[in-house]
Amino acid sequence: MFLVATIAVLITMALAFVRAALGPTVFDRVLAVNVFGTQTVLLIAVAGFLMGRPQFLDMALTYALMNFIGTLAVLKFARYGSLADDEKRA
């Protein structure tokens, strides 16, 4: 049953990947990558149970953290052209 869930998550990742490739705007791509990342968290968690090693959950949480920070960083960069400035550049 873990195998079925793993395959379903992989299918969702493939669908999100197609959207990331199609775009058309940068925001569609960031959205698709965000979905891809959330599904990766689920994939790591389910794969951990599939292989009988639930310690994989540590990696799942780390990946969730990085996915969140990464999404915000890309959005900030797309909007301000820099990660350090708060002010919008002219």
Binding site: M1, F2, V4, I7, A8, V9, I11, T12, M13, L15
Partner: peptide
Amino acid sequence: LLSGATFAIIAG
């Protein structure tokens, strides 16, 4: 697990 997998695919 199965319903979660179904909703994931619907989201995709």
